[in-house]
C-alpha cells in the first residue's frame, strides 16, 4: 500500500479528534497486517471507491466508544448516554465520517479521485477483520477516553 494514502488519514484523525474532543492525541507505532486482525469491540467502517478501493475501520473498545460518544455529546450540550445506544452509535459513526471525509478531501487535492460510502458500525465480542489480497495499515492512537485504532486497507483499481 502506498504511504501517500496513509498520511492524510493520520493527519485528519489528529486534527478532527483534537478539534471535536478537545484533547491531545498520542500516536503509537504504525504497523502493517496482512492476516486477519482482532477488532476491539466497536468498529465504524467507511468504504472508499473510485481510483482506489478499500475501507477504513475505526476500532475501539466498548468503554472507549462510550467515553468518546459522551464527550462528543457533552461538547454539543446533548444528553449523556449510559450504553452504546442508537445515538451513541450515530456519534461514533459521525466521528469516523468526519475523519474519512477530511482525509478523502486531502487525497482529492493530491489528485486521487474517489468517494466514500455512508458509514456503518459493528459491535460485538471476538470479532476479526480480514481483507484478502490487501495489507491493512494500523495507526494506533491514544486519547484520554481510551485507545482508537485506525485500520486502513486501500488498493489501486486495476
Amino acid at each position: 500500500m502506498r504511504v501517500e494514502y496513509i498520511n492524510p488519514f493520520v493527519e485528519s484523525a489528529y486534527s478532527v479528534i483534537r478539534e471535536v474532543l478537545n484533547v491531545e492525541v498520542k500516536r503509537g507505532e504504525l504497523y502493517l497486517k496482512s492476516s486477519s486482525i482482532p477488532v476491539l469491540g466497536v468498529a465504524a467502517i467507511v468504504g472508499l471507491a473510485g481510483d482506489v478501493e478499500g475501507r477504513v475501520l475505526f476500532d475501539m473498545s466498548r468503554e472507549s466508544a462510550l467515553n468518546v460518544a459522551n464527550d462528543m455529546l457533552k461538547s454539543m450540550d446533548m444528553d449523556q448516554i449510559d450504553s452504546l445506544n442508537d445515538m451513541g452509535r450515530a456519534t461514533i459513526t459521525e466521528l469516523a465520517n468526519m475523519i474519512t471525509g477530511q482525509a478523502v478531501t486531502k487525497l482529492h487535492n493530491l489528485g486521487f479521485k474517489f468517494d466514500l460510502t455512508p458509514p456503518a458500525i459493528f459491535t460485538g465480542d471476538n470479532m476479526e477483520v480480514s481483507d484478502p489480497g490487501v495489507e491493512a495499515l494500523i495507526v494506533p492512537m491514544e486519547i484520554p477516553q481510551g485507545k482508537i485504532e485506525i485500520n486502513v486497507a486501500i488498493r489501486e483499481r486495476t
Binding site: 462528543m72 454539543m76 446533548m78 445515538m87 450515530a90 456519534t91 459521525e94 465520517n97 455512508p118
Partner: peptide
C-alpha cells in the same frame, strides 16, 4: 442520515 448530526 446521521441522528447525531440531525440533533446537532
Amino acid at each position: 442520515d446521521s441522528m447525531f448530526v440531525t440533533k446537532q
